[in-house]
């Protein structure tokens, strides 16, 4: 097992380099920066750069140096997570990200947990009733949900349950009410939860399709296995056969699917945080793109990639831990 994990860890190194290389290329190929490299006055999204911004950009990204040296410097900067300062408010990019990453992580984390809680039982039900009406209904519903754009779902939900046109059950925007700072601990927490319900739902429903389909296939594969016949021959009840013997096997590949959902979820936070005005990383990157604040953009992109890579790594290690066939190699 140790060798397996070590080998997996070693594979992270080239990928990490690949990520840094890709961000490096993104920076140098961006038209504004490409102009700066050629010694022209760059543009920032159609607007001429101020001398100050130009200076800062050249310095941070080493646009005046040869590519190799510049890449080396970029690596050193990344190792310190030094993404420079925001062009908008001149605060360090890392600080801005740190302030906001917590909310986004809790948002994606809750969505992930919720989609597992729903999708796994649904997938199992579909597998157990394969080809029957239930199976088809489930397939229809999860694909229906998957086909609804996040922003449309958010709009409809807000229209129906928030804001008061029909029901006024939940707050429409923000991570907390305005008077949250005066609330006691539990009241604050409840206030936060109420603000998170709609955003989490909007992030969750899209993942149901892939996770439940995956569960279904995994379960179907296990249901055909010989050892279930052994379990039945022992006199175990059908429920025990399915929910103890079969499920344990079927869940092994499913625990690792969460990593594959991460990119879509991170993309989803951009939309959800924008709609519900939540001060998370998605909103940060979106505002930065609109403001052409490229230091913040590159910071968020790099951090997101690192987080996703870490997710893949965790998934692979988790797989080793839950599958005895690999654990005791």
């Amino acid at each position: 097992m140790t060798t397996y994990i070590l080998r997996r860890l070693l594979l992270v190194i080239p990928t990490l380099f690949g990520i840094t290389l890709l961000t490096f290329l993104l920076i140098r190929l961006a038209p504004g920066n490409a102009a700066l490299i050629k010694g022209q006055t760059g543009e920032n999204g159609g607007h001429a750069m101020t001398a100050e911004v130009r200076e800062q950009t050249i310095k941070l990204y080493g646009l005046d140096k040869d590519p190799l040296t510049a890449y080396g410097d970029w690596l050193v900067k990344l190792a310190h997570l030094d993404f420079g300062q925001s062009l908008v408010d001149h605060r360090p990019v890392l600080t801005k990200i740190r302030e906001r990453i917590g909310l986004s992580v809790s948002l994606t984390g809750s969505a992930l947990v919720l989609s597992y809680l729903i999708a796994v039982p649904v997938g199992i039900a579909a597998a157990l009733r394969r080809g029957q009406r239930t199976d088809r209904m489930i397939s229809f519903v999860v694909f229906l949900l998957y086909s609804i754009p996040t922003f449309v779902a958010a709009l409809v939900l807000i229209l129906l349950v928030a804001g008061g046109d029909y029901l006024n059950l939940l707050p429409m925007y923000g991570a907390n009410s305005i008077d949250a700072s005066e609330m006691s601990g539990p009241a604050w927490a409840w206030d936060r939860i109420k603000h998170m319900i709609l955003p989490v739902i909007c992030l969750t429903y899209g993942s149901l399709a892939s996770i439940s389909r995956y569960t279904r296939v995994s379960m179907l594969e296990v249901l055909g296995q010989d050892f279930l016949r052994t379990a039945r021959a022992k006199g175990l009840s059908e429920r025990r056969v399915i929910f103890s013997q079969a499920l344990r096997n079927a869940l092994i590949p499913i625990v690792t699917v969460f990593a594959m959902e991460l990119p879509a979820l991170i993309g989803g936070t951009i939309i959800v945080e924008e709609i519900f005005t939540l001060p998370g990383m998605g909103q940060l990157v979106f505002q930065s793109i609109e403001a052409r604040d490229q230091f913040v953009i590159m910071g968020v992109v790099t951090i997101s990639a690192f987080v996703t890579l870490f997710g893949y790594l965790m998934a692979d290690i988790l797989y080793v831990l839950v599958d005895p066939r690999i654990r005791f190699e």
């Binding site: 010989d226 052994t230 039945r232 013997q245 344990r248 599958d323 005895p324 066939r325």
Partner: peptide, 24 residues
Amino acid sequence: LRALRGKQIAYIFQEPSSSLNPVF
């Protein structure tokens, strides 16, 4: 039937490697 299986009539199958549950 469940009381019969395993208690009165027990089985050994052809393929031991696939007849045992790999995760227990």
